[in-house]
């Protein structure tokens, strides 16, 4: 579904990613783990067009998307819940969700039933339901994170990119977020999950990649990675 080959990207003259290849199959939950500053966020930014890759190929459902503007990539069905949540703080929870479906409402993607999907989001994230008319800027960090995820899901995406949905959340909320990710996986939502909580991410994922200084050091089925001594030493020692 999403295929990345030899991705090179960075910021201006600073090259951060030095040739990554990642594959996300239809219906799979793939995780990209790595320590702070490894280039996980940069990878997702390059995939969704927030930064233009220097070279390499990115295909979504067989279509080359590398170098396209982010709004075009979104319209092709790639949703990105970015690092830091980035919700629209002066708009209501409902409006944030509606904007997640912008390409559907404006005819760039099949419309379906936007209203019903919004209600489905309120079922999936009951905390948002209580706050539907509240401005997003007044939500707690955890609620904003859920809004960011729900907003991305409103696209009815072919692939969903999640950048550290657990960042800055209390342990109880982290648990809640991961249980939602599990439910999305059961619903066959194709996902690429970036996490620092490597253990939790490998628990839910089908397949994992380990990123180190802009290069992939290891990859494999999540269950195998969890038992890989090198991965355990570097990423699973402290977490959980």
């Amino acid at each position: 579904m999403l295929k990345v080959e030899n991705l090179v990207a960075g910021y201006g003259k600073v090259q951060v990613l030095h040739g990554l290849s990642i594959n996300v199959e239809d219906g799979q939950l793939v995780t990209l783990i790595g320590s702070n500053g490894a280039g996980k966020t940069t990878t997702l930014r390059a995939l969704s067009g927030m930064i233009a890759p220097e070279s390499g190929s990115i295909t979504l459902g067989g279509k080359e998307i590398s170098g396209l503007a982010s709004h075009r990539i979104t319209r092709l069905g790639l949703a990105h819940s970015p690092e830091g949540r980035r919700v629209f703080s002066t708009l209501s929870v409902e409006d944030n969700l509606l904007l997640g479906a912008f390409p559907r409402v404006t005819g760039a993607r099949p419309k379906g039933d936007v209203q019903a999907d919004r209600n489905r989001m309120f079922d999936l994230f009951p905390r948002l339901s209580e706050r539907r008319t509240q401005l997003a800027g007044t939500l707690s960090g955890g609620e904003q994170q859920m809004l960011a995820m729900a907003r991305a899901l409103m696209l009815q995406p072919q692939v969903l990119l999640l950048d550290e949905p657990s960042m800055g959340l209390s342990p109880r909320l982290v648990e809640e977020v991961f249980s939602i990710i599990r439910r999305l996986k059961d619903a066959k939502v194709t996902m690429l999950l970036v996490e620092q909580f490597a253990a939790a991410a490998l628990d839910v994922a089908d397949f994992g990649y380990v990123l180190e200084n802009g290069r992939l050091s290891t990859s494999g089925p999540a269950a195998e990675l969890k038992n890989d001594p090198a991965v355990r030493a570097a990423y699973l020692g402290t977490a959980h």
């Binding site: 927030m50 709004h71 979104t74 990105h80 708009l91 904007l99 997640g100």
Partner: peptide, 17 residues
């Protein structure tokens, strides 16, 4: 709303298509 979203956070608005 798309205008307001762009005013809030241009990059995030781009991610909405």
């Amino acid at each position: 709303k798309a205008v307001v979203a762009t005013a809030n956070d241009r990059d995030a608005a781009g991610l909405m298509g």
